[in-house]
Amino acid sequence: MSYEINVIIDDNANKAVTETLLKNQFANTSLVAELDDGYLLSGICVSDDKKTFKAVDLPDPEQEVTNHISTVKMYEVNGATIFVESGENDALGIWPAGASMYDYFTAWDFGDTDPATGLAEFGLDPNLDDAKAGDTNVRIWQTLSYCADMINAPHDDFVRDAEGDIMVFTTYAEAERWIADDKKGAYYLQHGEMDPADHKIVR
């Protein structure tokens, strides 16, 4: 028995490199590809026992991130950047050499989750633009400080209301007042928390 895994090929990927990868064994899988009117169509078939395919030793990933539901590993192989996703979805992403995790996640559909929150769940900095005095409809991003080895530690995120919705402040000054009020009084660290959260106002 076998099952198919989704394959994502970036439009800017080197088609010759991609075709070579797909025609050869990769990551203990059998890769199948065909060209149709110049467009590369592809799929992956993986046997249940994985004994029918030749194993390929991969180097350690250049980077590995997880949100404890899905894991994405990034490799630089034969002139291309390969992303192997496992967990909630199984996928192989083939991108041009030098692509980053940020490039890979641009193809993600985070659904109802804000993309910045989605990136933070994987431990990636969402690189939000700082707001400036005079900006309107701003948000507050809070950076948390928990023990590195803590399991299921909360991740960085926007400040949210009691219903879990992202709080949007009409003015920059209003956001400043919220931060000032939040810092009043004693602060009690949560289990595994090293320091109080840092806040910054973002667009």
Rank of each mutant, 00 (worst) to 15 (best):
A107P: 01
G123H: 05
N78V: 02
N89E: 12
H155R: 15
V159K: 10
W108V: 10
D57E: 15
G79K: 00
F105I: 05
T106D: 00
N89F: 14
A120D: 05
A91N: 11
D157K: 00
F83T: 03
G134I: 10
F158Y: 09
I140E: 04
M101G: 04
W141M: 00
G87T: 02
M150N: 07
A120E: 05
D60W: 08
A97H: 09
F105T: 01
L144T: 13
L128Y: 08
G123F: 00
D165P: 03
A80Q: 10
A55E: 12
A162P: 08
S145G: 07
Q63E: 13
F83G: 04
A97E: 13
L58A: 06
N127Y: 12
N152R: 13
N78W: 08
R139Q: 08
C147Y: 15
H68M: 15
G164V: 07
V138Y: 05
G134L: 07
T117F: 10
D90T: 12
A131K: 07
A99P: 05
T136P: 04
G123A: 03
D57W: 12
D112N: 14
A55T: 12
N127D: 13
A97M: 12
A80R: 01
E121H: 11
A153L: 07
F53H: 11
E85S: 10
G79P: 09
I140G: 05
M74L: 15
K73N: 11
D149K: 04
A80T: 06
T106Y: 03
V56Q: 03
I94T: 07
F158N: 06
P96T: 09
A133D: 10
T113V: 13
N152M: 15
F158Q: 04
T106N: 02
